[in-house]
Design a protein around this nucleic acid. Sequence first.
DNA 1: CAAGCGTGGAT
DNA 2: TATCCAAGCTT
Length: 356
Amino acid sequence: MDARGQSVKCGKLDAPRAGSVAQALLDWYDTHARSLPWRMPPGANRADPYRVWLSEVMLQQTTVAAVIPYFERFTTRWADVAALAAAPEDEVMAAWAGLGYYSRARRLVECARVVAARGGFPEDEAGLRALPGLGAYTAAAVAAIAFGQRAVVVDANVERVVARLFDIEQPLPAARAAIREAADAITPDVRSGDFAQAMMDLGAGICSVRAPQCLICPLRSDCRGQVRAEQLPVKPPKKAKAQRIGHAWWIERDGAVWLIRRPASGMLGGMRALPDDGWNARADGSAQAPLAGAWREVGRVAHVFTHVALDLAVMVSQGGDNPSGEGEWWPLDRLDEAGLPTLYARAAALAMAGRG
DNA sequence: CAAGCGTGGAT
DNA sequence: TATCCAAGCTT
């Protein structure tokens, strides 16, 4: 980058004045932004790597508001990476229930054990990138925020801010190379962790997807895309969502319900669940019950995943059922500790209310 | 590299 | 109500 504030060449891009962009953003950050309460204050060169890593993994595709209570519970229960490494995987999975993208939880444990075994986190971006669950974004964010290293941190916020700042009209995902190059050009050598957090706070609060507030943006004098900010970055069209119908089975005996654990891969992989029919019922309602017995429908859960919309009928056993295979009788008075993902937590709530 | 993978809040 | 999409990673 060019700390003198001169225009710099960035590949084919004529970049805004790189040094002035970084300085204006950091000035704004020092006086206005602080979205994550567990972060070190602006200007702190380093932060606790365990907390930075944990928060960054939780924040992958997940809103700050959703993460905060989980982060508090995790750090209370497992105060450092050694404690998390020593935790049984199923307890961590259960604690993650409701946060989504459950492969993160299994990789979180795997990563904690690798880090504990080697005596601490790697302090360079390449070493971090090799850890389970750390991709390009998270490795760069931890390197910059936890270890004070210069790293080019690019998430969806940074993509949006940079696409607008440099007026990059090429659609995603093809634009990623140019966006990364441009982000590199404006990333300062010092305080790159604060810079990254400032870019993300700017993207979340001012340079937002809809209705960006260009009039109060600290970068407006350097921004080339503000006349069409809302159109940038250009995104690819989405695919239609598959519709599915399924049935979940509520089998209760002696104050306990029969729960299974889902296969490690696939939807809700590795999580406890109600037994179900695999969500492949025919739309005419003629599902084939895998279990013997009589059933009564007590309600339906309409649940929308990233690429599937599911209509799940909750069926309560009227007797004659015969649970088979792997599973466990889970006490109803501790059902909230089972770590059911949201879909099955809702189904269970319907069953508890309607089981008569 | 496109597809698969959760959930909840905002509009 | 429908749609978008958020501090992405893995295969």
